[in-house]
Design a protein around this nucleic acid. Structure first.
Lengths: 206, 206
DNA sequence: ACAGCGGGAAAGACAGGTCTGTCTCCCCCT
DNA sequence: AGGGGGAGACAGACCTGTCTTTCCCGCTGT
């Protein structure tokens, strides 16, 4: 990933990780950024609000992140780790026993996600549309969406499905479409997508 | 539509409609807004740029549109008319002979649209994510997306399909998903969605 | 037919707020 | 003593929206 060089790892030296209340500045910034960016998008949240909500001086912010965009890149990476990998993929793999069941469980996870009152929509789609596909942040979002597609493709290969790449691309159309529909208020979007996902699996059986 | 009261119809009295070069101010504003909003989104285009590109004074702008948001509402209405109705629905109805063929032709139209070099993504999805579903402009986008779904539902009823409402909601998941995937660079997203759309039709046959 | 008037529109200053990013000053802790 | 961090002023650009000034065109009354 092209972003990891820009994510500053706080030096830490030998210091003990502090308790929640007075975490290191960079951690507080990332935590607040995750919260606000997820909910309202990256364009709607300014640096001034970020530093105020995280109780950090502006100079401190810019000592750790050379620009707001680099913080957004760090946020996207965190989002990939916490949401894509841990929430979606790991959750789906924990449910069901076969690879096909793992795949279908993705939409069960989405279903629950859509019903949370703090459901915020997909960060990667949001940033992609906010910044455009040619902007570095839009490109990074495309990359993370491709990474998520890679997870789906891996599950398809484990299931022995035909044309795993094509399968994963069609699968992702269902995921993206259901997320947009859920943002528009259709709480059953995941169930609808899951039904079509079942047909897609049938047509990719060996 | 709740917006039409905000779209000023220039008084005109008995005057002849002028030629392209020196159209009335409100028409020039709408034309420039359509171009810029479609391409870059409504948040990225400011009033100053709009009036400069349309050769209109700021006071003139605010005489015709009480706020930028009201111009965006007029733009959304225009987008619904020019894109949803005339480009998508009418085009699809012109292709093929049966209602089912009309339905599937929607993705042929999308396919051609994705391949245009000035493909800009879906305005309604873009505004919905930019402003959020609770903002009036986000709500208006949801309404226009529902209107588009109504067109699909009408075609489903003409085709005699079962549960036309459920059908149209699933159908729109495919449309939205393919649009997002096309924005991310997958030019075959329409074809993939069309294949799944075919299965969806089969499962809604009486 | 012609003078004069009213209003649409252009140009742009201005207000008050926001944005990102830089810089200074000082404190406090090690 | 030195550096991380808090507080905040500041610059320069941008945003929406208001207001003033000037021009010009067409309509009306005589």
């Amino acid at each position: 990933m092209s972003t990891e060089a820009k994510v500053p790892v706080s030096p830490e030296s030998s210091r003990v990780v502090p308790s929640e209340g007075h975490a290191h500045a960079v951690e507080r910034i990332l935590s607040v950024a995750y919260e606000l960016f997820s909910r309202r998008g990256v364009r709607d949240v300014g640096v001034n609000e970020l530093i105020e909500r995280s109780g950090v001086a502006k100079a401190t912010f810019y000592r750790h992140f050379p620009s707001k965009d680099s913080l957004v890149l760090a946020f996207l990476e965190q989002r990939d780790k916490l949401w894509t990998v841990e929430a979606i993929v790991s959750q789906a793999r924990r449910r069901g026993t076969s690879p096909v069941e793992h795949l279908l469980a993705i939409f069960d996870v989405l279903e629950e996600w859509f019903r949370r009152e703090d459901f915020e929509g997909s960060t990667f789609i949001h940033v992609l549309l906010e910044m455009g596909p040619s902007h570095p942040l839009g490109q990074a979002s495309i990359d993370y969406l491709a990474k998520l597609r890679g997870h789906v493709q891996a599950l398809a290969e484990e299931a022995g499905l035909l044309s795993p790449d094509e399968f994963a691309r069609s699968w992702q159309i269902l995921m993206k479409g259901s997320i947009i529909s859920a943002t528009g208020g259709d709480l059953q979007a995941a169930k609808r997508a899951q039904q079509m996902a079942g047909w897609l699996i049938e047509h990719h059986r060996a």
